[in-house]
Simulated scan of single mutants.
Amino acid sequence: MDRAAAQAGKPRATAILVPGAGGAVPSDFLIRNRAALEQRGIATILAQGNVGAAVASASRPVVVVGMSRGTLAAAAGSSRANGLVLVSGPLMPGPAPNSVKAVAGSPSALPTTLIVHNPNDACASTPASGVAPFQAWSGKAQIAWVSSGPGQGNPCGPFAAHGFAGNDDTAVSAIASFILSR
């Protein structure tokens, strides 16, 4: 686990980062914005497997932040966290073989949740149309809509609307505000 922000000063919160399907590569939305979270006083820990174990070892308050496919592991390991952030995730059953709803099983299994989604997300597995039904099902999820252009490349990739194509700062600000409010 990496606690880079903790060495730079006293962080106000901890974020457990769970990257998308591509893993912890520099282009992943969470990895490329890790320093921006740390600059806001949030220690970051990259989940390397068991998210629940990372939550248990983290300084409080702790929020699990999952990106795209990483939202599944984030939801599964967040029950003891102070919050959960679902970034461009497959929220409801449908085109995705798995969904956050299916992984969680019950709204009571989720901590206070923030959904960060782009209304222009063209990824078939993470349609914006799943956000409102998930919010209704959960009964407690907040939504931060972050618009950007269509971007480039794979519609499910990090530089498309799915990854906030050039509007990272707005998405990071919403995530940081949620984390620091825990």
Score class of each variant (00 low, 15 high):
Leu114Glu: 08
Asp2Lys: 07
Gly89Lys: 03
Leu72Val: 04
Ile175Gly: 04
Ser148Thr: 01
Gly20Ala: 09
Asn118Pro: 15
Ser108Trp: 12
Gly70Asp: 05
Ala174Ser: 11
Ala81Trp: 02
Gln152Thr: 15
Val172Cys: 08
Ser108Phe: 14
Asp2Pro: 09
Asp168Ser: 06
Ala102Thr: 05
Gln142Ile: 00
Val116Arg: 04
Val103His: 06
Met92Ser: 08
Arg80Ile: 12
Arg182Ala: 09
Val87Cys: 09
Glu38Met: 12
Pro19Asn: 11
Ala21Asp: 14
Arg34Leu: 08
Phe178Cys: 10
Met67Gly: 08
Arg34Ala: 06
Ala6Ser: 12
Ala136Glu: 10
Ala58Phe: 01
Ala56Thr: 07
Asn98Val: 14
Gly49Tyr: 03
Thr71Pro: 10
Trp145Lys: 01
Asn167Pro: 14
Pro26Ile: 10
Val172Phe: 02
Pro127Ile: 13
Pro97Cys: 03
Leu37Met: 03
Leu180Thr: 00
Gly49Asp: 08
Ile42Gly: 00
Ala58Met: 02
Ala144Gly: 05
Leu30Gly: 05
Ile143Trp: 15
Ala141Gly: 06
Val87Arg: 02
Pro95Tyr: 15
Gly70Cys: 07
Ala56Gln: 13
Gly105Asn: 11
Ser59Glu: 13
Ser129Tyr: 10
Phe164Tyr: 07
Leu180Tyr: 02
Ala8His: 15
Ala43Ile: 08
Leu17Met: 06
Thr112His: 14
Ser106Cys: 10
Ser181Val: 03
Thr14His: 06
Gln142Ala: 13
Thr14Val: 13
Ala174Met: 08
Val85Thr: 05
Val100Phe: 00
Gly149Arg: 01
Gly157Asp: 01
Ala81Glu: 00
Gly70Ala: 09
Gly94Asp: 04
Ala24Lys: 10
Asn120Ile: 10
Val85Ser: 12
Ala81Gln: 02
Lys101Tyr: 10
Asn154Thr: 07
Arg12Met: 05
Val55Lys: 00
Ile31Trp: 01
Asp2Asn: 12
Glu38Asn: 09
Val25Gln: 10
Leu72Ile: 08
Arg32Pro: 08
Ala122Trp: 07
Thr44Ile: 07
Ala122Ile: 08
Ala176Asn: 04
Ala58Gly: 02
Cys123Ala: 10
Ile175Tyr: 03
Leu84Lys: 04
Leu86Val: 07
Pro95Asp: 14
Ser181Tyr: 07
Arg12Phe: 04
Ile16Asp: 00
His162Ser: 04
Ser57Met: 11
Ala136Asn: 04
Ala43Tyr: 00
Ala160Lys: 00
Leu110Cys: 06
Arg3Ile: 13
Ala56Gly: 14
Val85Trp: 03
Arg12His: 14
Phe29His: 02
Pro11Phe: 00
Leu110Gly: 08
Arg32Val: 14
Ala102Lys: 10
Ala24Tyr: 09
Pro26Thr: 04
His162Ala: 06
Ala73Val: 12
Ile31Met: 11
Val87Trp: 07
Arg32Ala: 05
Val25Lys: 14
Gly153Arg: 05
Gly83Val: 00
